[in-house]
Amino acid sequence: MGRGEPPGEITAEGAARPYAALRVGTHRLAILRDGAQTYHAMLEAIRAARSAILFETYILRDDETGRRFAEALCERSRAGVEVSLLYDAWGSDVSDEFLEELHAAGVRTLAYHPLRFHGRLAAFFARIYRRDHRKILVVDGTVGFTGGVNISDDYAVWGEEKRGWRDTHLRLEGPAVAELQFRFLRAWRRHRGAPIDERRHESRGRRPDPLVRIVGTALPGQHGAIGRVYRKSIARAQQRIRITNAYFLPTIRVIRALRHAARRGVDVRVIVAGTTDVPAVRFASRALYEAFLKAGVRIFEWHGRVLHAKTATIDGSWSTVGSSNLDTLSLRVNLEVNAVIEDAAFAAALERMFEEDLAHCREVTMADWHARPLWERVVGGFALLFRRWL
């Protein structure tokens, strides 16, 4: 059973205590809300590194946020820490000068699936289609991070008036960190990153943990693993399901699982993005509302800041925080990683966060859905045709 601590307050400098800090079995976990708490914790861990830093992100930008992280990574590299940075070539936007400064300090970088045409059209489009959407940071093999937060000013926290996107991240200490390390190193080696010093990455054992597990996609035997975990957990639900997912375009199987749960009396509530950076997804998602509303699923649209979080809790005991959206690309194609936690105190903290987020939401009713203007119905239906690529 975990022991929770009250949420921390964000200071003017953008630093903050975690939203909740808990012990779960042999793990120490901290729920981090938005960029302020996440960046503070990540930079603190990076600056304390003594041996190795493994850093993987979908979005890395050459902006104030990116430069702050680059400075911290360069400082540690100059101090003798082995620093490896893996970023997605499609999602990121970094200049040659930015990379040159990293390389000059000894930081090794690797772009995932750069868009180069090698003469085979199918291979070219496969590189575009499959992206590295994971967010992983491992420091000295003992401290890990994962969740939804990227490295960019979208999460701007450096000024008092800036709050940035709404997102959730997780800090971990314990056996699950070895699994994050394994996943990073496998991708690094497979895509021909610079040779690593194996002695710095000696794992204490990728041993299973029933309370805190790391689940991901794009590994042999784990294709669709996150979707299966969601479906099995939803199928077992008896009381309540709480999902926050920014890009809510579930596969048919997940749609069926949620509808069946609601029809058997489970209280299913979903927070989706009313304010988003990808309007096409919002329109396609809205086209699905009727199927959920008819089954009794309650849908709440978040408004204000852009919503980017990907979390869920079931029956106050099962939870997940990660990078995976509930859409086809995340569940079947992209590299993704989620932490799955089975602990009542952890679930209670996420449920409290869900309830607080409802204050920024408007519930969608069947009357609202039928009152959509004609142009929105047309756009939504058209966008739904391309749901597999959104």
Score class of each variant (00 low, 15 high):
residue 102 L to Q: 06
residue 259 R to C: 15
residue 370 H to M: 12
residue 379 V to H: 08
residue 208 P to I: 00
residue 96 D to N: 13
residue 271 I to T: 05
residue 199 R to W: 10
residue 324 S to P: 07
residue 372 R to S: 04
residue 181 Q to F: 04
residue 77 S to V: 02
residue 11 T to F: 09
residue 65 T to I: 11
residue 290 E to T: 09
residue 335 L to I: 05
residue 136 I to Y: 01
residue 49 A to T: 07
residue 130 R to P: 04
residue 219 L to W: 08
residue 154 D to G: 15
residue 389 W to P: 00
residue 247 Y to M: 12
residue 233 S to M: 08
residue 271 I to Y: 07
residue 269 R to T: 05
residue 150 N to Q: 13
residue 283 F to Q: 13
residue 156 A to K: 05
residue 106 G to F: 04
residue 212 V to P: 02
residue 268 V to R: 00
residue 367 A to V: 10
residue 8 G to H: 01
residue 137 L to W: 03
residue 96 D to Q: 14
residue 277 D to Q: 14
residue 161 E to V: 09
residue 232 K to S: 15
residue 145 F to Q: 05
residue 203 S to F: 07
residue 261 A to L: 08
residue 88 D to P: 07
residue 372 R to C: 03
residue 361 C to S: 12
residue 164 G to M: 02
residue 154 D to Y: 10
residue 205 G to S: 06
residue 389 W to Y: 15
residue 331 L to D: 09
residue 148 G to A: 12
residue 339 A to M: 02
residue 214 I to T: 02
residue 122 A to S: 15
residue 267 D to G: 04
residue 165 W to P: 00
residue 33 R to D: 06
residue 222 Q to F: 08
residue 59 I to T: 06
residue 371 A to W: 05
residue 51 S to M: 05
residue 54 L to Q: 08
residue 153 D to P: 02
residue 294 K to M: 12
residue 322 G to N: 08
residue 96 D to S: 12
residue 140 D to G: 03
residue 167 D to R: 09
residue 384 L to E: 12
residue 378 V to P: 04
residue 177 V to D: 01
residue 196 I to E: 11
residue 93 D to Q: 14
residue 233 S to N: 12
residue 128 I to R: 15
residue 388 R to K: 15
residue 341 I to W: 07
residue 184 F to H: 00
residue 57 T to R: 10
residue 152 S to N: 11
residue 344 A to K: 06
residue 37 Q to Y: 00
residue 59 I to K: 06
residue 188 W to V: 00
residue 196 I to N: 00
residue 352 R to W: 09
residue 28 R to G: 11
residue 127 R to F: 05
residue 314 I to C: 12
residue 366 M to A: 14
residue 66 G to E: 06
residue 34 D to S: 11
residue 229 V to R: 15
residue 4 G to C: 11
residue 84 S to A: 15
residue 349 A to V: 01
residue 101 E to H: 12
residue 19 Y to E: 09
residue 28 R to F: 08
residue 189 R to W: 06
residue 275 T to Y: 03
residue 306 V to T: 13
residue 45 A to Y: 04
residue 358 L to A: 08
residue 272 V to C: 13
residue 198 E to G: 08
residue 345 A to H: 03
residue 149 V to G: 01
residue 155 Y to E: 10
residue 389 W to M: 13
residue 214 I to N: 07
residue 175 P to W: 04
residue 196 I to M: 11
residue 283 F to T: 11
residue 223 H to P: 03
residue 268 V to S: 01
residue 318 W to M: 01
residue 188 W to P: 01
residue 140 D to N: 06
residue 373 P to R: 11
residue 75 E to K: 10
residue 162 K to H: 14
residue 377 R to C: 04
residue 295 A to K: 07
residue 198 E to N: 02
residue 344 A to G: 01
residue 183 R to A: 10
residue 208 P to Q: 02
residue 339 A to F: 01
residue 171 R to C: 06
residue 208 P to D: 10
residue 30 A to I: 01
residue 388 R to G: 05
residue 90 W to C: 07
residue 66 G to S: 07
residue 37 Q to R: 13
residue 311 T to C: 14
residue 333 V to T: 12
residue 220 P to R: 06
residue 170 L to I: 09
residue 77 S to T: 12
residue 144 G to H: 06
residue 207 R to V: 13
residue 61 R to D: 07
residue 163 R to I: 10
residue 379 V to Y: 14
